[in-house]
Amino acid sequence: MASERLPAGVPIAELVDIHRHYVMGDHVVRALNGINLRIEAGSYTAIMGRSGSGKSTLLNILGCLDRPTSGQYRIGGEDVANLSDGELSEVRGQKIGFIFQSFNLIPQLTVLENLEVPLFYQGRVGAESRAKAEVLARRVGLEGRLEHRPNELSGGQQQRVAIARALMNDPLFLLADEATGNLDSKTEEEILGVLDELQREGVTIVVVTHNAKVAARAQRTVWLKDGVVESVEENLHRESSVAAQEASA
């Protein structure tokens, strides 16, 4: 069944001395050069850094789309650094939710069908997946749009569908690479609001961004430089802003 939500603070993803090297002819690009990072249940992490610092590479490894050249990667205690392609697919399907910059909905499928895709690959398509899709669509404010095609929706709505899709498998954590990069600032605010809400409900989130405004919503910011973690900033300002919000609510 779906992975149950772990109590806050329990490490769910742990990277130990992760390297990812690309061999380009006779020289080696060290996209990641010894990353140590721990993602705890319920946390909200932003990854920042200059272009080429290795953010996307790191996110791909976190998302089991890519395998590190060396190092250990544990998800919920299980070492996934050396899994086969098929096993990695299973990990992605069961434990990870992806949100992409360009939404990445499948154009020929309806919203409902797009939402069902993750469960389809686990043989869980049917009444269960439909009910779940309806719940999640409501949660991201898209009830009544289930039969629409992606091209009939605005960018913000498409990204809401993508978020709902990422939640369909009750993932251990959500990974977002520049999730609001293609949206105007008002829509960006809406999407970030949705993520905030999810985080408050206990979803673990990792975002990659260039945008300080986006990073400000996270609890901490991990700065990358040349494939290593340069610094980790706890975001005190956010804590106060969320606290203020909660107080006023």
Partner: peptide, 16 residues
Amino acid sequence: TREIGIRRALGAKKKH
């Protein structure tokens, strides 16, 4: 190609 990438990210195995 991109659709294939999306499906793989969402848990599709090669056989799928």
